[in-house]
Design a protein around this nucleic acid. Structure first.
Lengths: 197, 197
DNA sequence: GCCGTCAGACTAACCGGTCGGTATGCGCGG
DNA sequence: CCGCGCATACCGACCGGTTAGTCTGACGGC
């Protein structure tokens, strides 16, 4: 009985995406064969290439999902009716929490970007930049208002913070002593403390 | 005329290492074939497998070189006869400068770690941890002396800073407006400002 | 004449992607 | 309400190409 779902209840494309996400995060993009993905999803290559144009497409889809989620959340915090200090803190902490909650996607994102073909790479970079610029605008707003120090260019501040987010997949362990929210609060605090005039 | 050196004056193993470093950084470990490496070095596979046991060995050798260099430099700054504030600032800025000056090695390091076999991976992680702990000790020393804030656990502070270092290869462009030293000063400044009591 | 150094042909495995074929359920004419 | 026909969903064998690694042997200095 083929019909979008199978053995379990989830549709095949989502099962493939989930399996690919896990395997890419575990072994990396290149070390994961299409065969392994379809086996983990309980289908065959025919099914995969029925829904996705290529192995690249699969990776791109993972990226798109993360990007969409993070942009939505950033917009939400940036548009809130709060003082700039609170909005930046909220956004800075939230990106940490959502990154930890999707550590697989995050590690794929930062480790496998260069496996994408040139045009898809450009597309992802453009969306990344949009995100970066929205975040930077928050820092600049605070600097104009005199709430944040202008000692460091806003660009560098943003890269500094995102560096730590990027780095999370390297050292954060879910079974460690700190909850995602605690880590997020600490990292946001470090950012805000660094920005004190 | 086979004999440690060839066309140019540099010994074959070093030529292979240099070629591998450049190609790994450009295309990534998996996308670089052994054939490409030996062609770039002006030799053949026979030469490569005469000096290195495997492609993995090549990668491991690149890591070992970076690790050795960074550990040496950190020890130098940490052992200096200066107030803790100055020692930490020096170390924090120096790791940025040397990372920028060896951006190829750095991007390989952070992107290809997981390509190493299990035992070699463990070895690299152990050396990494040694480095991390030396750095953390500096932060803790300052915290004990009351020079640095204890609001954030030293571990997190170190990961925060290394995150930005890790991230450098993503955004730093040599033809950009900031020199390596300027970037380093700014990032070290951010760290020290975040640590103000 | 022997040993370090390397060339280059070779192999066995594996990869992403294709393709002809099959089964299932839905729309629709009767 | 039936059954025909087609679109959709999927299977699995297969292909051309690539890969890391091996092996035999030769060249040249000591």
């Amino acid at each position: 009985m083929p019909r979008t779902t199978d053995g379990d209840g989830t549709p095949v494309p989502q099962r493939l995406l989930a399996a690919a996400t896990r395997l890419f995060a575990e072994r990396g993009y290149d070390r994961t064969s299409v065969q392994e993905i379809v086996e983990a999803a309980g289908v065959t290559k025919g099914a995969l290439y029925h829904y996705f144009g290529s192995k690249d497409d699969l990776l791109h889809e993972v990226y798109a999902r993360v990007l969409r989620l993070q942009q939505e959340r950033l917009d939400h915090f940036a548009d809130a009716d709060e003082p700039i200090e609170k909005r930046l803190r909220g956004a800075a902490a939230d990106v940490v929490v959502t990154t930890i909650e999707n550590l697989d996607d995050a590690s794929i994102f930062f480790r496998s970007m260069h496996h994408l073909g040139p045009e898809k790479n450009k597309q992802v970079r453009a969306e990344r930049r949009r995100y970066h610029e929205r975040f930077r605008a928050l820092v600049e707003e605070g600097q104009r208002e005199g709430v944040f120090s202008t000692a460091t260019p806003a660009d560098l501040v943003v890269d500094y913070h995102f560096g730590s987010v990027h780095h999370l997949s390297t050292w954060y362990r879910p079974d460690g002593p700190l909850s995602p929210q605690e880590v997020a609060d600490h990292l946001a605090d470090l950012l805000l403390r660094a920005l004190r005039p």
